[in-house]
Amino acid sequence: MAKILVIEDEKPVRMNLVAMLKAEGFQAIAPEDGQLGVQIDAFVNTIIHELRSPLATMKMSIELLQTTQNSQRHLFYLEALQAACNHEVELIDNLLNLQRLETQTFPIETETLHLQDWIPAIAEPFAIRAQQRQQILQVRVCAELPPVTLSRFSLERVVSELLNNACKYTPPHGKIILEVFQKQDKALRTNEASDGACIDQGASFWIAVRNEAEIPASFLPHLFDRFYRVPNGDRWQQGGTGLGLSLVKKFVEQMQGTIQVHSAEGWTSFVIQLPISLSLP
Score class of each variant (00 low, 15 high):
P172V: 00
P172M: 01
P172G: 01
P172S: 07
P172Y: 05
P172H: 07
H173M: 05
H173E: 14
H173Q: 14
H173P: 05
G174I: 01
G174N: 02
G174S: 03
K175H: 10
K175W: 04
K175M: 09
K175E: 13
K175G: 01
K175F: 04
K175R: 14
I176Y: 12
I176N: 03
I176S: 03
I176F: 06
I177F: 08
I177G: 07
I177P: 00
L178F: 06
E179W: 09
E179V: 08
V180T: 11
V180I: 03
V180H: 07
V180S: 03
V180N: 03
V180C: 10
V180K: 03
F181R: 04
F181D: 10
F181V: 02
F181P: 05
Q182S: 15
Q182F: 02
Q182C: 05
K183F: 00
K183L: 09
K183D: 12
K183Q: 08
K183M: 13
Q184A: 10
Q184V: 10
Q184F: 02
Q184D: 14
D185T: 14
D185M: 08
K186F: 08
K186E: 04
K186T: 05
K186Q: 09
K186H: 11
A187S: 15
A187M: 08
L188S: 06
L188H: 14
L188R: 12
L188M: 12
R189W: 12
R189D: 11
T190P: 00
T190R: 15
T190M: 13
T190N: 13
T190D: 15
N191H: 12
N191R: 12
N191P: 05
N191Q: 09
E192V: 10
E192D: 06
E192L: 15
E192Y: 03
E192G: 04
E192F: 10
A193F: 04
A193P: 09
A193C: 07
A193E: 11
A193S: 10
S194H: 08
S194I: 07
S194C: 13
D195L: 14
D195W: 09
D195P: 06
D195N: 15
D195F: 14
G196R: 09
G196C: 03
A197S: 11
A197D: 12
A197V: 11
A197C: 04
A197E: 14
A197H: 08
C198S: 13
C198N: 10
C198V: 01
I199H: 15
I199T: 09
D200H: 15
D200C: 01
D200T: 08
D200E: 14
D200Q: 12
Q201K: 09
Q201G: 04
G202H: 03
G202R: 02
G202A: 01
G202Y: 04
A203N: 09
A203C: 02
A203L: 08
F205K: 04
F205A: 06
F205T: 02
W206D: 07
W206L: 08
W206H: 13
W206M: 05
W206A: 10
I207N: 03
I207Y: 02
I207F: 03
A208C: 07
A208Y: 02
A208Q: 12
V209C: 09
V209T: 13
V209P: 15
V209D: 12
V209L: 09
R210H: 14
R210D: 02
R210L: 03
N211E: 01
N211M: 03
E212Q: 07
E212T: 00
A213T: 11
A213G: 05
A213C: 06
A213D: 01
A213W: 04
A213V: 09
E214L: 05
E214K: 05
E214A: 06
E214V: 04
E214C: 02
